[in-house]
Amino acid sequence: MSSNSLYAVLLRSPWWASMLVVLVIVLASGALLPAQYRPFGMLAALPFLGIGLYRAWQQGQGPNSKRVAQALERAGAMPWREFSALLQRAYEHQGYAVTPLPGSAADFKLTFSGRTILVSAKRWKAAAHGVEPLRELLATGRSQDVDICVYISLGEVSAQAQSFAKEHGVTLVSGQTLAGLILNHV
């Protein structure tokens, strides 16, 4: 599916946007079609109704913005030892075996089902994140032959760092994704 199709846009939008499309289709069918064709015109709203219900379910399952903001605020107030313990609990809860890596560009080595992941989080409080810590993490990852490198931050990651991460396959974890990881452990 094209990322700019109406279905794709509605799958990224709030649930009520799809319901608005449903309402427009039903009202237009009722007003513009002859009586014997109105039910068929209204059936055209079914895919949009499905998308709206799916998005409502998705949005109901995720944490609300207030809880996300509170979790990120609490994480920002933590000292490194507390935050690293929080991350370790969160990853262990997901089933990873977590090994701390002191004195390295990476802070944790995660293993699960034969896959190895390096996580760098020590600079999580920095106001801005550039390319250099990502380069260090990537170099460490290549030297240890890992599958995935993950960089955790509360602050803004520069556009240059984002493009570097995308180009080299480094996963950036911040904002709502980070809150989802730590929310039940804060």
Results as ranks from 00 to 15, higher is better:
51 I>W: 08
51 I>Y: 07
52 G>P: 06
52 G>V: 15
52 G>H: 11
52 G>T: 12
53 L>Y: 06
53 L>G: 15
54 Y>I: 12
54 Y>G: 09
54 Y>S: 15
55 R>H: 06
55 R>G: 07
55 R>W: 09
56 A>H: 10
56 A>I: 04
56 A>P: 04
57 W>P: 04
57 W>S: 14
58 Q>H: 08
58 Q>Y: 13
58 Q>I: 12
58 Q>F: 11
58 Q>W: 13
59 Q>W: 11
59 Q>N: 11
60 G>S: 13
60 G>H: 12
60 G>A: 13
60 G>N: 11
60 G>V: 08
61 Q>E: 09
61 Q>D: 03
61 Q>W: 08
61 Q>T: 07
62 G>F: 03
62 G>P: 00
62 G>C: 07
62 G>L: 12
62 G>N: 03
63 P>K: 05
63 P>N: 08
64 N>K: 14
64 N>C: 07
65 S>K: 14
65 S>R: 13
65 S>E: 14
66 K>Q: 11
66 K>N: 05
66 K>P: 00
66 K>V: 12
66 K>R: 14
66 K>L: 15
67 R>S: 13
67 R>D: 15
67 R>I: 10
68 V>E: 10
69 A>T: 14
69 A>H: 09
70 Q>T: 15
70 Q>R: 12
71 A>F: 09
71 A>P: 08
72 L>C: 11
72 L>K: 08
72 L>E: 03
72 L>P: 08
72 L>V: 13
73 E>R: 12
74 R>K: 15
74 R>C: 03
74 R>G: 00
74 R>T: 09
75 A>N: 06
75 A>E: 00
75 A>Y: 09
75 A>K: 06
75 A>L: 15
76 G>V: 14
76 G>T: 13
76 G>D: 10
76 G>W: 12
76 G>K: 09
76 G>E: 14
77 A>D: 11
77 A>Q: 15
78 M>F: 06
78 M>L: 15
78 M>W: 07
79 P>T: 05
80 W>P: 07
80 W>C: 05
80 W>I: 10
81 R>N: 12
82 E>H: 11
82 E>P: 00
82 E>I: 04
82 E>F: 03
83 F>A: 10
83 F>I: 02
83 F>H: 04
84 S>V: 00
84 S>I: 01
84 S>E: 11
85 A>D: 13
85 A>G: 12
86 L>H: 03
86 L>W: 01
87 L>T: 01
87 L>W: 05
87 L>D: 03
88 Q>G: 04
88 Q>K: 11
89 R>W: 00
89 R>Y: 01
89 R>F: 01
90 A>W: 01
90 A>Y: 01
90 A>L: 03
90 A>V: 02
91 Y>W: 12
91 Y>N: 01
93 H>L: 03
94 Q>E: 13
94 Q>D: 09
94 Q>H: 07
94 Q>A: 12
94 Q>M: 08
94 Q>S: 08
94 Q>T: 01
94 Q>K: 09
95 G>D: 04
95 G>C: 07
95 G>L: 05
95 G>S: 07
95 G>P: 02
95 G>A: 07
96 Y>L: 02
96 Y>A: 04
96 Y>D: 05
96 Y>W: 11
96 Y>N: 01
97 A>D: 06
97 A>K: 06
98 V>F: 06
98 V>I: 06
98 V>M: 05
98 V>S: 02
99 T>H: 05
99 T>G: 00
100 P>K: 02
100 P>Y: 05
